[in-house]
Simulated assay, not measured.
Amino acid sequence: MRAILQDMRAGDVLEVKALVTRKQGTEGFFQVLTFPLRLVDEKALRPPLEPFFILFEDPEYDRLLSSAAKHATRLVKTMDNGQQTVHAVTLSTDRTQYDPDGQLALRYDWDDDTEGHSALLSVELIGSTGVARPLLIGTSFAKQLSVGSLPLCPLPLLDFYEESTEPVRLAGGETLSLKLMIKPGPRGVIEPVSIVLAVEVAVEPVTPAPQAGYALLRRQVVEGQTQVECVRFAWSPRASRVELVCPDDLRTEIVRRRAVFLWTDTARPLAAKGYAVQKITLTGSTHFPEPKVLERVVCELSGDRNF
């Protein structure tokens, strides 16, 4: 950290990311929080302004982000307490189609919710000609990835590589074949079983744009009078973050998502008295009167490189 800060100049931004999850029931599922820290010059005179961070969601848009999950199930023979038993094992993904630069989320589950049993995942890319070629996973260029049962396993599609360790360029219409190999031994598995699940690379973007305009309204006091000003407006803006709601949705037919919009504003702290968001559509408008406003939650790096 010291080496990074020594090379920074006043005005440079350092981003600190934190992975946040719930205490139980969400193994492998994280939300990423990003905190931009700007290096300031202590000798420079700061303007009498303060940043405000406004976060809001649109429930109607969240419903459009839901997608159909995809499943593949095979029967696995095991020895449980000296008796041969048959279990159903399911491999699931959060979509049937993905953007070339998107993120694939998968998990595999036993019918009795066995936790921690590992299997090996391999990926093949099937082109338009029907020829399949294996891909390497992650920056470690692994041919197979160890995946445990129950936890969610996110796989960015930009982290797939060719055999020559060159990044693979996915194109719409191609197919990713996911193969999960369960080997004999652990958990009493008698014979090897492979589960194959194919998902497509989408031609059109899988995340729709919101068909609405959003106005950020600021209530302020100017010369003793209260007034409302539109400080920002955007039609069909891109969400700052689109994330899964619950990893257990992969075991069902519908995977829910939510979009979070993070907008910023800079104002005199004594003049700004509150914010609101107005949504405008072709059929009318609505009002989000109380968005979450993070006021004065700003971290700065001083000139002596201390937080």
Rank of each mutant, 00 (worst) to 15 (best):
T73V: 12
D99C: 06
R95M: 06
V86T: 15
L125D: 02
L121I: 06
S122F: 00
H71Y: 01
H117P: 01
I126Q: 10
R95A: 07
H87D: 08
L121Q: 00
A69V: 06
D94P: 04
Q97Y: 07
D109F: 02
S66R: 15
E57T: 14
A105I: 02
M79H: 07
P100C: 09
E57I: 05
L65C: 07
K70W: 00
E57R: 14
G116L: 00
L64K: 13
D109S: 09
T93E: 01
S67P: 00
T96E: 10
H87L: 11
E124N: 11
A44M: 11
L65G: 05
D41R: 09
L75M: 11
D41Q: 07
D101P: 03
Y98M: 01
A72P: 01
H87V: 00
R95G: 04
F53K: 13
S128M: 13
T78L: 09
T129P: 01
V131S: 12
G116T: 04
G82A: 09
P100M: 09
S92W: 00
Q97L: 08
A69K: 04
D99N: 10
R95Y: 06
T93P: 00
T85H: 14
L49T: 15
D62A: 14
T73A: 08
D94G: 08
L45G: 08
G102E: 05
V131I: 15
F53R: 14
Q83E: 14
P59K: 12
S92I: 04
P47Q: 14
T114H: 04
T90C: 04
Y61W: 06
A119P: 03
F53P: 00
T96S: 10
A68I: 13
P48Q: 11
T73N: 03
S128V: 11
L64R: 13
D58H: 09
L65K: 07
D58G: 09
D113N: 14
D41L: 05
T78I: 14
F56H: 06
G82H: 09
W110V: 03
L65Q: 08
S128E: 14
D62F: 08
G127K: 12
L125G: 09
A72S: 10
L125M: 11
T114D: 06
L121Y: 01
P59R: 13
E124D: 13
R63P: 03
N81G: 12
L64F: 09
M79R: 15
D111V: 08
D112P: 02
S122T: 12
A105M: 09
G116W: 05
L121T: 04
E50F: 02
A72W: 00
A68R: 15
F53L: 14
P48V: 10
G130W: 06
V76T: 02
P47E: 14
V123S: 01
D113H: 09
Q103A: 08
L125W: 07
R107Y: 01
K77C: 00
H71I: 08
L121W: 03
E42Y: 05
D101H: 08
E115G: 10
F52D: 03
Y98C: 00
Y108E: 01
G116E: 03
T78H: 04
P47D: 12
V86L: 12
D80K: 14
N81C: 10
P48K: 13
H71L: 05
H87A: 06
A88Q: 14
A72V: 06
I126F: 01
D101F: 05
L64N: 07
A88W: 07
W110T: 10
L91P: 00
P59T: 13
Q84N: 08
T90F: 06
P48F: 11
K70M: 07
L121A: 03
D80V: 15
M79S: 13
